[in-house]
């Protein structure tokens, strides 16, 4: 996504310089907290705990990182975060896309009101459901299991809405041609509609993945076993247990953030577009 220039040819350079300076100051302000965290992660615990500048009196050290990585849990949590987020993303996108296609293309009794119910459900905050969902997971014996973590996160009515809007805009002629040739609905969906929808599917997938990767409340409630925790909840237990050791805590913060930052740098265009497409549909 490239920004178009909207200034007129007559605009003087002075306004541009002012804008640049303001923008640069804001950007520095926004990067600063994270840079401070990075700087602290490279200090010794003693330096981090006493007021000092960017570099502590003991100089730069990777002590905090080594200390933290030798604690095997961080790796397990990162792996748990990765695979559960991926499964949530795949399941959410799959079931949402299938449903959205049915609402967009197929005619069946009750279609309108069913879709209205799903759209209305967008407003239900997951926080309202934690008590009955926890109770349900107790009944199914899914507390402290990966499925107890994953399943309640795969229902995303907003994504059905977004995908249905998109499918509505795909020309139907292509599908008709294939159907005349005898292709079934599922085949048409798989080999014609899906390839055409790659950008919007990527947008939805990225959005779902970021949310799953960062989700705190539900994993915090449903997982007690340290080996099954994800990064956000795992890191919280370290803080709760040891109080805050600043250098190590910041090292953890930096490591947990790194994967998504790298992903952002690589897929910047898609992510920006993804937020723009899905963001207006609800978060």
């Amino acid at each position: 996504m490239r920004s178009r220039q909207t200034r007129s040819p007559g605009e003087k350079g002075a306004g541009r310089v002012v804008a640049f300076v303001v923008l640069a100051l804001m950007a520095v302000g926004w990067l600063m907290p994270f840079l401070w965290a990075v700087a602290t992660a490279f200090k010794t615990e003693t330096d981090a705990a006493s007021e000092s500048g960017w570099i502590g009196g003991d100089g730069l050290t990777t002590e905090a990182f080594r200390e933290m990585l030798s604690n095997g849990n961080v790796w397990i949590w990162a792996l748990n975060s990765l695979w559960t987020s991926l499964v949530i993303t795949v399941l959410t996108v799959t079931i949402s896309a299938l449903a959205a296609y049915a609402f967009s293309r197929l005619r069946f009794p009750g279609r309108r009101w069913l879709f209205a119910v799903i759209v209305a459900a967008i407003i239900i905050p997951p926080q309202v459901l934690i008590i009955p969902l926890f109770y349900e997971m107790l009944t199914f014996d899914l507390i402290d299991t990966p499925w107890g973590l994953i399943l309640p996160q795969i229902v995303a009515p907003a994504m059905v809405f977004i995908l249905k809007q998109f499918f509505d805009g795909v020309p139907i002629e292509l599908e008709d041609a294939a159907r005349v040739d005898g292709a079934g609905r599922l085949r048409v969906f798989w080999s014609i509609v899906l390839p055409l929808s790659r950008p919007v599917m990527a947008a939805v997938a990225i959005f779902v993945f970021i949310n799953a990767w960062n989700n705190f409340l539900w994993p915090f409630l449903v997982i007690n076993d340290t080996n099954l925790m994800t990064l956000p909840t795992g890191l919280q237990t370290v803080i709760d247990a040891h109080g805050i050791q600043y250098a190590q805590t910041m090292a953890q913060a930096v490591l947990a953030a790194l994967p998504l930052i790298v992903v952002f740098l690589f897929f910047q265009r898609q992510i920006v577009k993804g937020v723009a497409t899905t963001g207006f549909g609800g978060r």
Partner: peptide, 13 residues
């Protein structure tokens, strides 16, 4: 990157 990056961080971080 500067303005959006924090959104990618988990609440714990």
């Amino acid at each position: 990157l500067s303005f959006f990056m924090p959104f990618l961080l988990a609440s714990t971080v």
